[in-house]
Design a protein around this nucleic acid. Structure first.
Lengths: 337, 337
DNA sequence: TTGTACGCGTTATCAT
DNA sequence: ATGATAACGCGTACAA
C-alpha cells in the first residue's frame, strides 16, 4: 500500500560516501566540513529527496520544537485571527503549532492540555475560562511547563500573559455610550464563569457607569454555546426603563443581540445603541456597522509566541504584556433621544 | 530554569519493581499481566505523574499519530468550522492535528506541506488552489503520502476527496435567483486561479442561466485578500442593464459585496438580490439575512478525517465523498421588479 | 507471566 | 575534517 520508506541519514551517508555524522553536520551547519564534501552530501540529499525526521531529532533533543495552543473556539474570528498571528510567528521561527479548543468548557480545557503535553510540546499559549482560579494552570506550574496566558491575565507576576486591559476596555465602551448621551445602559455578557474577560469587561463597564453618576446597568449573562433567547432580552431590556445603550462582551454576541432586538421590534441604532468588543471584520461589513472595542488579535498572537519562545529558552522573565485596544466607531451607535 | 525531568518508563518500572516491558504492556493493554502487577504499575504511574513520551513512541512506531491540515485561511468561518470537525474526529481517535494555512497562495501551499511532512505527519487533509493542476499533489503522490482533498475534487479516481458538488451548488444558486423572477444575473467570484471552487461554482451558475434561456451573467473576479473596490462593482453592475440578482462565490464575499453595493446606493434586496455560499453563521444574524448555499462544514471535516485514517491504515480505497449542500433562503433575496 | 535486549533516526561526544 | 558510537524513550520479539 505504501511506497518505499523515506530515506534516512544512513541512506544519504551511503549515497554520498561519508558517515552519518558528516551528513548531520552539513544539514545543521555545525562543525567544519570541506566544501566539496558538503556539496556531495547536498547532492545526495537532493537526489534522494531526503527530509530530516523530526521524530528522531526531537527525541534526541528532548524537545519537540512545537508549541500547543488552547483557545475557547475557532468559530470566533478574534481567536482565528489570533491563531493566524501565532502561526505566522511560529513559521518564521521554524516551529510548529498544535491547536485545540475547549468550547468554553473547563473539562475540555484540562483534557486538551493533557493531550498537548502528551505531545511533549515545549510550551503552551492558553486561554482559560478563569485565570484566577484554574487547576489546569496550577498543574502546569507544578510541572514547570512554560506557558503564556492569552487573552487572560493573572494577578501572579510569575504567570506570563498577553492581553488587552479588559477592564479598561469595558470602561471605554461605557464612555462611548455615555458620550453619545445615553443614560440608561445595559450589558449582554458571556457567562462570567466561562470567561473572566467577560467579567472584567463588565467590571470596567459598571465602574465607568457609576463614576458618571448613572444608575447601575442591567445585565444579562448568557451561555456562549446556547442561543440568546428573546425571552431573556425581553425581561431585562423591554421594560419602560429599558436601556438605550448596550455593551456586548464580544462582537459575535453583539450580532446575536442585535438580531434578537430586531425580532422584538427594536431597531439599532434608532431604538437602542449597541457596542461590541473584538473588532471582528464582519462588523464593518454589515449595516449598521458595528461599533466595537478592537483587539489587535493578530499582533497579540505574534507577541504571545515570541514571548513564549523566550520563556522556553529561559531568556526572559515572566512578563505581563498588555497591548492597547482601540475604539472603533460604528453606525450601531447613535445619540439617545 | 526547568523543573525535574519528566519520568520515563524506567522510572515507573523502578518505582513499581518491574521491568519497563511490563510497564509498557500495562499502559498499552498488550499481553497478559497479573492484576496485582498491573495495579502496582498503575499506582507508580499515578504517583510519578508519568505521561508516555510520544516522541519515543512515534519514533519506535515510525508513525506520528498526527495528521496535517492545510486550508486557505482560518478567517473564513467555513474553514474554521471544518477544522472543528476535523479536531473533533481526531480527538475521538486519539490523534493530533497540525494546522497550517496558505492564504490562497500556491507558494505558501508548497512550503506549508513541506513543513507538515517534516513533522512526519501520517497523512494530510488539504485544500489547494487548483486540484486539477497542482505540483504539490503530484509530489505527495510520488512519495505515496496519504491525503484527502478537502473542498477540492480531482478527476483522478486515485485522489480521495471530501467536498460538495460545487458546480451543482452554483446551479442551485442560479435556480434560486431565477425562481425569484430575476432575469439579469451577475456573479462576484474569488479569482478562479486562486480557487477552483470558485471556478466550478461559476461554471454551474452560468450553465443554469443559459439553460434557462437567459443572457450570460456579468462576472467580477476578485482577489481573496485585497478589497473589493467600488470601481469594479460600478463598472460591471451599475449600467442600465445591471443585474438584479447576484451570486457571490462565498458568504464573506457576499457580505463585502452587499456593503459596497450599499455605498453605491443600491439596497439589498430592494435594488439587488444577493445569494452567497457556505452558510456561515453570521449570515443568519445580519439584516437582511443572507441567503446561501450551505456546506455541512463540520461534517465534512469529520468525514475527511475518518476517511484519511482509513487510507492511512490501508483499510479503504481512495474515495470521492460528496456531501449534500443545502439551500438556505434569506432576506437578501427578493423578487425582481 | 515477566524480563532482556534491540532498533527506530537523530545529535553530540569522543577519537582519529 | 571526518568517522564511530552512545544516548534519547519507547514497543516488541525472544528468552526465561
Amino acid at each position: 500500500m505504501n511506497g518505499p520508506p523515506r530515506p534516512t541519514l544512513h541512506d544519504v551517508a551511503a549515497c554520498a560516501g561519508v558517515s552519518i555524522a558528516t551528513v548531520s553536520r552539513v544539514l545543521n551547519g555545525t562543525g567544519i566540513i570541506r566544501p566539496e564534501t558538503a556539496a556531495r552530501v547536498r547532492e545526495a540529499v537532493r537526489q534522494l529527496g531526503f527530509r530530516p525526521n523530526r521524530m528522531g531529532r526531537d527525541l534526541r533533543m528532548g524537545q519537540s520544537r512545537s508549541i500547543g495552543v488552547l483557545l475557547p473556539t475557532l468559530a470566533n474570528p478574534v481567536f482565528a485571527d489570533s491563531v493566524a498571528g501565532i502561526q505566522e510567528a511560529a513559521r518564521d521561527a521554524g516551529w510548529t503549532v498544535l491547536i485545540t479548543s475547549s468550547d468554553y468548557d473547563t473539562h475540555h480545557e484540562q483534557a486538551a492540555v493533557d493531550g498537548l503535553l502528551a505531545e511533549r510540546v515545549a510550551g503552551l499559549i492558553i486561554t482559560v475560562t478563569d485565570a484566577a482560579h484554574c487547576p489546569t494552570l496550577d498543574g502546569l506550574d507544578e510541572e514547570h511547563t512554560p506557558y503564556v496566558l492569552f487573552h487572560n491575565e493573572s494577578p501572579r507576576p510569575e504567570r506570563s500573559s498577553v492581553a488587552v486591559d479588559n477592564a479598561l476596555a469595558g470602561h471605554d465602551a461605557a464612555t462611548a455610550l455615555i458620550a453619545r448621551g445615553h443614560q440608561r445602559l445595559g450589558m449582554v455578557a458571556g457567562r462570567f464563569i466561562a470567561s473572566d474577560r467577560s467579567r472584567l469587561r463588565h467590571g470596567g463597564f459598571i465602574a465607568a457607569v457609576r463614576a458618571a453618576g448613572l444608575p447601575d446597568p442591567a445585565l444579562i449573562e448568557i451561555d456562549f454555546n446556547n442561543d440568546l433567547t428573546c425571552d431573556a432580552l425581553r425581561a431585562a431590556f423591554l421594560n419602560p426603563q429599558r436601556p438605550t445603550g448596550i455593551f456586548c462582551s464580544n462582537d459575535l454576541l453583539a450580532l446575536r443581540t442585535i438580531a434578537r432586538l430586531r425580532e422584538l421590534g427594536l431597531g439599532v441604532p434608532d431604538d437602542v445603541s449597541v457596542i461590541g468588543m473584538d473588532g471582528i471584520n464582519v462588523g464593518q461589513l454589515i449595516a449598521p456597522s458595528l461599533a466595537s472595542i478592537v483587539q489587535p488579535a493578530r499582533d497579540m498572537g505574534r507577541r504571545a509566541f515570541e514571548h513564549l519562545l523566550a520563556r522556553i529558552a529561559g531568556e526572559a522573565p515572566p512578563q505581563q504584556i498588555r497591548l492597547p485596544h482601540l475604539y472603533r466607531p460604528g453606525q450601531s451607535l447613535s445619540t439617545a433621544h
